[in-house]
């Protein structure tokens, strides 16, 4: 028999000058295989059309529906309501981002600023600017290593799960370091360890990380943040020796 589940949802519209942050309670009947994302859509369709939250793919690929579910930042589309035996689910927006409204935050703006600041795109080598030339073949092992880090969906969970980032606004966070590590290991990229040191070899980068491992423990794509940050730290420390 289906059970009733309760949602406590953070509600606040920063565009409305009269509005105040508050928690609102909703109830609905659980269905088999229900995710938090499905439940939110049902709530919006049947109970409260003003409820704001983000989604695109519904399959853990786009990273849009990240939010804090019962204290854990994660993707709503990959979280089954059945995981909560007491049927009580509290939803909060991801901390550390500009709030659009309710559960919707502007991760896109953050990611774009980060990419521009850290120059997160391929910097081809001087002899590799002819777009008509065939690219040099890449060793499958290297391609696999790069692909592993390319799996990041920019959901912002690692940023929200990082107390260092919450305390220091300019800290680049795991997503920034993951992307730097991705270009650092790409043989097509012209930048050297020294160049990367100038971007993340400081308190806002890899030496500001306190190894709290919120990124590692909450990443919905299970990216190896801990190993990558340690790798970058060793690499960057070696540049001053």
């Amino acid at each position: 028999m289906s059970r009733q589940i309760s949602f406590n949802i953070f509600r606040y519209d920063p565009q409305d000058g009269q509005d105040k942050p508050k928690m609102e309670r909703y109830q609905l009947t659980e269905t088999p295989g229900m995710t938090v994302f499905i439940a939110l859509n049902q709530l919006r369709e049947q109970q409260d059309p003003s409820l704001q939250f983000d989604f695109v793919c519904r399959a853990g690929i786009c990273g849009s529906c990240a939010m804090v579910i019962n204290g854990f930042p994660t993707l709503a589309c990959r979280t089954l309501t059945a995981n909560y035996p007491d049927g009580e689910i509290t939803l909060m927006p991801l901390p550390g981002f500009e709030l659009i409204g309710d559960l919707s935050v502007n991760t896109g703006k953050f990611m774009r600023e980060l990419a521009e600041r850290l120059k997160l795109w391929l910097h081809p080598k001087a002899d590799d600017h002819d777009m008509h030339r065939l690219e040099n073949p890449m060793a499958p092992e290297e391609a696999a290593r790069i692909y592993e880090l390319e799996r990041c969906v920019e959901c912002g969970v690692c940023v929200s799960a990082c107390a260092t980032k919450q305390m220091r606004e300019t800290f680049v966070g795991a997503v920034g370091m993951m992307k730097i590590a991705r270009f650092e290991m790409d043989s097509r990229d012209a930048r050297t360890a020294d160049d990367f040191y100038h971007v993340i070899g400081n308190q806002d980068g890899v030496f500001g990380c306190m190894t709290l491992l919120g990124c590692q423990d909450n990443c919905p794509k299970d990216l190896p943040h801990m190993q990558q940050i340690a790798y970058l730290r060793r690499k960057m420390a070696a540049t001053i020796l």
Partner: peptide, 25 residues
């Protein structure tokens, strides 16, 4: 209210040898 002063030519943060030294120490 918060203005980030660019600290490098590219507007990004500087790499600082002291950061690495302090972390190693």
């Amino acid at each position: 209210a918060k203005t980030r002063v660019p600290t490098a030519i590219n507007g990004g943060p500087y790499g600082q040898a002291w950061s690495a030294k302090a972390d190693c120490l």
